[in-house]
């Protein structure tokens, strides 16, 4: 579904990714771990198309209508409509834009692209309230401006709510566990696990093994200095938790 080949990418002239390779198949959950500054967030921004993160060379191929297509030239909104989603490490506040309107605009623009029926405000309200229940979010957030006056934990739940609304084929979760207490993390992980299926895939970027107790990965990668230096099963995350990264960096 996703095939990244020899990717070099920069932000503000600094090369962060230096020859990264990653292949993700439908149905898989990949975890990406790595010390600060290793390029984890950069990878998430390049996959989703942030304008300040420039791919210098390499390919990011994503399956669209059965074909592998290099998406590096596509706008972020085109990529999103094709099924790529980013749960932000730091969700952005949108003053004056009600959460319900934002979510509906998002949902409908994806439906429009795929020639599916759009939802009116009343139907959408019922649809969204169901999703919020799963994430144990208070109804009051529906009418509030997106992420404005949300606590850190509520912002992260709101990211997963948006993911549930769009049901993406490829979700990139960028440090979704940061700023969450254990109870909130369990709720968020439960919401994410409900969205796992054979047709979609996830890339879970995290600093800590903790989250991976709740969102169980199939494959774990360690990213260091812009390249994946080790790939393994869930046991790799446990070893990193136990021994840190030094043994990987030295070898």
């Amino acid at each position: 579904m996703l095939n990244i080949k020899d990717l070099y990418a920069s932000v503000e002239g600094n090369q962060i990714l230096k020859g990264l390779n990653l292949s993700v198949k439908a149905g898989q959950v990949h975890a990406i771990m790595g010390p600060n500054g290793s390029g984890k967030s950069t990878l998430s921004k390049v996959i989703t198309g942030h304008p300040q993160y420039v791919a210098d060379s390499g390919l990011v191929d994503f399956e669209i209508n059965g074909q592998m297509v290099n998406i590096l030239g596509m706008e972020p909104d085109q990529r999103a409509r094709e099924g790529i989603f980013l749960a932000f490490q730091y969700p952005v506040e949108l003053p004056g834009v009600p959460t319900s309107e934002f979510l509906r605009a998002s949902y409908n623009s994806v439906c429009r692209h795929h020639g599916l029926e759009q939802m009116d405000p009343i139907d959408f309200d019922g649809f969204i309230r169901e999703k919020m229940k799963v994430l144990e979010m208070d109804d009051k957030y529906i009418d509030r401006a997106v992420n404005v006056d949300f606590s850190g934990g509520e912002k992260k739940r709101n990211e997963i709510l948006q993911m549930a609304v769009l049901n993406p084929r490829l979700a990139v979760l960028d440090e979704t566990d940061s700023g969450l207490d254990v109870d909130s993390m369990k709720i968020v992980a439960h919401g994410v696990n409900l969205l796992r299926s054979k047709r979609n895939a996830m890339i879970v970027i995290t600093h800590y093994q903790r989250l991976l107790n709740y969102i169980k990965p199939d494959i774990v990668h360690v990213l260091y200095q812009g390249r994946i230096i080790k790939t393994g099963g869930p046991e790799l995350a446990l070893k990193v938790e136990d021994q840190g990264y030094d043994w990987l960096i030295k070898s």
Binding site: E75, A80, F88, L94, V97, F102, S109, A145
Partner: peptide, 19 residues
């Protein structure tokens, strides 16, 4: 942020102005 939710820049700008 809007774009990662499938909303194009023009519609995003309209919603931000309204906000």
């Amino acid at each position: 942020y809007f774009q990662t939710r499938g909303i194009g820049r023009e519609e995003a700008a309209r919603m931000l102005v309204k906000g």
